[in-house]
Simulated assay, not measured.
Amino acid sequence: MDNQSRRNTITKWHPPDVEYHKINFDGSVIGISAVVGFIIRYHNGHPLVPGARKLGHNTITVAEALIAKDALQLAKSRNLRKIKIEGDSKIVIEAILRKCNVLWRIRAIIEDLKWLASSFESISWNHIYREANFVAYAITSYGHGLENLHVWVGCTPLVVSNALLFDFRGLGYCLDPILHHRPMQLRPLSEHSSQLSDEK
């Protein structure tokens, strides 16, 4: 695949099968402060519950492993039985899938995640590009002011609602693989993007 074709690759969030719920999680570190977020969604893309919090001094890998654990604990507490879980942390996902050596910093968290995973009837893990994880990315931005885990039930912050709207309409983004390890840079494929930007 040439560079132009790779830049024009479309990446977007995909809904799970009808009987499943999907979890997306994300994290970021600004300075030495880590913030994390997740969202659990129905098969139709509607949010069941998003959550976010600040973790303070931490690495991005530890932060993302911890928020994945938070999300699974919440899913278990709500008696969800079939889960698909996605994140853009390749290290965390591959550690769960035993595709790489587990870093000592996250070893105990990974064991906790495996134990939690065993309580579900069905669970699958998938590494995705950050651009397909942008709703979780939007939620994460709310973690800066939250010392403890905060979840939204029956509502979502405006910026998160705007991000969800793209998914509801089945819109995708052009993925530039050269940029996908840097802060998110999205190029909307629809004129709807300018309308949503005006609402923020």
Results as ranks from 00 to 15, higher is better:
N3P: 03
R6S: 10
R6N: 08
R7N: 05
N8E: 15
N8F: 13
T11F: 09
K12G: 03
W13K: 05
P16H: 09
H21K: 13
K22A: 04
S28N: 11
I30D: 10
S33C: 05
S33T: 13
V35N: 14
G37Q: 00
G37P: 01
N44M: 02
G45D: 03
H46A: 10
G51H: 01
N58Y: 05
I60Y: 02
A63D: 05
A63M: 09
A63V: 07
A63K: 00
S77R: 09
S77D: 13
N79G: 03
K82N: 11
I83L: 13
K84G: 06
K90I: 12
I91G: 02
V92Y: 11
L97E: 15
N101P: 00
V102E: 05
L103K: 14
L103R: 09
L103I: 07
I109M: 12
I109T: 15
L113N: 04
L113E: 04
L116G: 07
A117L: 02
S118Y: 01
F120S: 06
E131T: 01
N133E: 03
A136S: 08
G143Q: 02
L146V: 14
H150G: 00
W152Q: 06
C155Y: 14
T156A: 14
T156H: 02
L158P: 02
V159L: 02
V160S: 05
F166M: 06
D167W: 10
R169G: 00
L171C: 08
L171K: 05
Y173N: 14
L175S: 11
L175M: 11
P177M: 01
I178Q: 11
L179F: 15
P188Y: 02
S193A: 15
S194C: 08
S194N: 10
Q195A: 11
S197V: 09
K200W: 12
